[in-house]
Amino acid sequence: MTTIHDFVLPSLNGGEIDLSTLRGKPILIANTASRCGFTPQYEGLQNLWTTWRSHDLMVIGVPSNDFGAQEPGTPDEITTFCQRNYSVTFPLTAKSHVKGPQAIPLFRWLAREGGFLSLPRWNFYKYLIGRDGNLVNWFTSITSPESRRVRMAVERAVMDH
């Protein structure tokens, strides 16, 4: 059976993010973009990371140019934008396809696990993975990381030992 721990993602600024090293940790993944109406959600993702990382939560952003060409930047431009505007310190992957036949394997797996409705239809879809490596919940772009739904789901995943 496949879990999130079976994937390795290229990091935005070189190297890789080996998800097998996150066994036993809840993970929140979001497909992100710098020029989107939902871009301020970077702040909410950073707040979740700051609040819960001492309880093992990992937040990972996956920049994508798939929706409205809203992530045209180079790796350096994306990094600078995220740090300067939202003080992002959580890991970002290399810019990736998250929909269609070109979607990276992680997003194909998320789509299989979450079903048709979980397919990202815009930037800032969020996927919560439990400590066991399985998809627990997913949230559309319109559900802010600071919404009660997301905060409660993250808290449950973090407290689930």
Rank of each mutant, 00 (worst) to 15 (best):
residue 37 G to R: 11
residue 101 P to Q: 13
residue 66 D to Y: 12
residue 1 M to A: 15
residue 78 I to T: 10
residue 9 L to N: 04
residue 10 P to G: 02
residue 112 R to V: 14
residue 49 W to A: 13
residue 3 T to L: 08
residue 69 A to T: 14
residue 51 T to M: 10
residue 121 R to G: 15
residue 132 D to K: 07
residue 21 T to L: 14
residue 80 T to G: 10
residue 157 A to G: 01
residue 68 G to E: 11
residue 72 P to L: 04
residue 13 N to R: 14
residue 95 K to G: 01
residue 144 S to A: 13
residue 1 M to T: 14
residue 86 Y to G: 08
residue 157 A to C: 04
residue 88 V to L: 03
residue 141 S to K: 09
residue 10 P to I: 03
residue 81 F to H: 13
residue 79 T to A: 14
residue 43 E to H: 15
residue 13 N to F: 03
residue 41 Q to F: 05
residue 60 I to Q: 06
residue 113 E to D: 09
residue 22 L to M: 11
residue 153 A to F: 02
residue 85 N to R: 15
residue 87 S to Y: 12
residue 125 Y to F: 15
residue 16 E to K: 13
residue 49 W to P: 04
residue 73 G to D: 10
residue 84 R to A: 14
residue 96 S to D: 09
residue 79 T to P: 00
residue 122 W to K: 06
residue 89 T to Y: 04
residue 2 T to F: 09
residue 23 R to E: 14
residue 12 L to C: 03
residue 104 I to V: 14
residue 158 V to F: 08
residue 141 S to V: 04
residue 161 H to L: 12
residue 36 C to E: 12
residue 65 N to H: 08
residue 124 F to M: 08
residue 24 G to Q: 05
residue 30 A to V: 05
residue 84 R to E: 15
residue 140 T to W: 02
residue 64 S to I: 09
residue 100 G to P: 07
residue 87 S to C: 12
residue 129 I to P: 00
residue 101 P to I: 11
residue 9 L to D: 02
residue 108 R to L: 13
residue 12 L to Q: 06
residue 115 G to R: 08
residue 93 T to K: 02
residue 135 L to G: 02
residue 17 I to Y: 07
residue 43 E to V: 10
residue 85 N to I: 09
residue 41 Q to T: 06
residue 97 H to I: 06
residue 114 G to D: 02
residue 161 H to E: 14
residue 128 L to K: 05
residue 72 P to G: 13
residue 61 G to Q: 01
residue 28 L to M: 05
residue 46 Q to M: 03
residue 79 T to Y: 12
residue 110 L to Q: 06
residue 19 L to W: 00
residue 92 L to Y: 12
residue 156 R to I: 12
residue 129 I to F: 05
residue 16 E to Q: 14
residue 155 E to A: 13
residue 22 L to V: 04
residue 128 L to S: 01
residue 84 R to P: 01
residue 138 W to H: 08
residue 124 F to T: 01
residue 150 V to Y: 01
residue 48 L to T: 04
residue 82 C to E: 08
residue 150 V to S: 02
residue 133 G to I: 06
residue 3 T to E: 06
residue 5 H to R: 07
residue 13 N to A: 11
residue 99 K to M: 13
residue 25 K to Q: 15
residue 25 K to D: 10
residue 108 R to S: 12
residue 115 G to C: 07
residue 91 P to D: 12
residue 109 W to P: 03
residue 102 Q to M: 13
residue 6 D to S: 14
residue 134 N to H: 14
residue 80 T to H: 13
residue 100 G to H: 10
residue 39 T to Q: 10
residue 106 L to Y: 07
residue 137 N to C: 07
residue 110 L to R: 09
residue 133 G to E: 02
residue 141 S to Q: 12
residue 77 E to L: 08
residue 131 R to T: 08
residue 72 P to T: 09
residue 105 P to Y: 08
residue 90 F to K: 06
residue 69 A to G: 12
residue 138 W to P: 00
residue 19 L to E: 03
residue 110 L to C: 05
residue 145 P to E: 11
residue 155 E to C: 06
residue 36 C to H: 13
residue 27 I to N: 01
residue 143 T to R: 11
residue 63 P to G: 06
residue 131 R to C: 04
residue 36 C to S: 15
residue 80 T to P: 02
residue 154 V to C: 00
residue 1 M to W: 10
residue 66 D to Q: 07
residue 89 T to L: 11
